[in-house]
Design a protein around this nucleic acid. Structure first.
Lengths: 143, 143
DNA sequence: TTCTTCTTGCAAATGATTTGCATTTATGAG
DNA sequence: CTCATAAATGCAAATCATTTGCAAGAAGAA
């Protein structure tokens, strides 16, 4: 079973000791289909039409449960809302178009830098957060 | 006149066409003395005792005016509140201790990376934001 | 000093996220 | 399969950072 399939994440959810509710299935489905990180509200808006009484707070709560277990990652791209994505395990960063909001995944260029920082500052490095802002070719064209 | 002196920033403020009010003087003073970026609330709490009727909204408004003119920089260190610092002109990043909140200034290791990203994605790169989280030696000791 | 315009104080609004609580539901034991 | 029970949800209200409207106050040019 692969990471591109909902079943994979549903199984993970169970394995983590989380209950697999209808709402959580739909949230996972939405995240699997997404082409980039989504905000809680974005997920909510996709699911609201599906099931009448669907609450934004449920989305937040589910996402937090997922994050606690490491199934989901949160990133703050400075767009006002935090964004969430399935945790592929692959560490990397995001390139965000300030025009249309398109998000590309970037690798990480900071291994060596982290080592240097650790050495110089004597800090124990926990993590780093990097986002790059730019204008995508199509937004550049239509200015 | 140097960047470590309030007078430098007061002059800048006037040159930008901003009025130099008592409140703005005190905000600049606070930022000059600070050893790292401060949140609006932190600035407010330092100034409240000085002048009775001092408003948090004034701090926010002043900071935004300063930012528009490039005198102040905003960074989101993921601590819940945005942090503000005088814009020294020197580009770099922050290393934040998750224990005590100490903030160290780091240089920037991303010139080359930006060039690569630009080339690969054809995005016009506007800026990047990098924060590193860690535990400082003293917090490490007292765990 | 006077006038105009920018700023402030104050209060209320906003927007994202969180929380309390009663109700519902997933899941494991029997 | 049925039941008990802890976990999750719906709903409403609270919270927290930040923003805004508006009348009153103060900077700075003339």
């Amino acid at each position: 079973m692969k990471k591109g399939q909902v079943e994979y994440w549903e199984k993970k959810t169970r394995e983590c000791g989380l209950r697999l509710t209808r709402q959580r299935k739909e949230i996972l489905q939405t995240l699997v289909q997404a082409t980039g990180p989504l905000s809680a509200r974005e997920i909510f808006l996709k699911l609201k039409p599906v099931s009448e009484s669907f609450e934004l707070s449920t989305v937040y709560r589910s996402l937090h449960s997922f994050m606690e277990r490491g199934l989901v990652r949160e990133t703050d791209l400075g767009t006002g809302e935090k964004k969430y994505e399935l945790n592929s395990g692959e560490h990397g960063h995001h390139l965000v178009c300030v025009g249309c909001g398109e998000i590309l995944f970037l690798g990480c260029p900071l291994r060596e830098f982290e080592r240097e920082v650790k050495e110089k500052t004597r800090y124990e490095i926990i993590e780093h957060r990097l986002n790059v802002l730019g204008v995508c070719p199509s937004c550049k064209g239509s200015e």
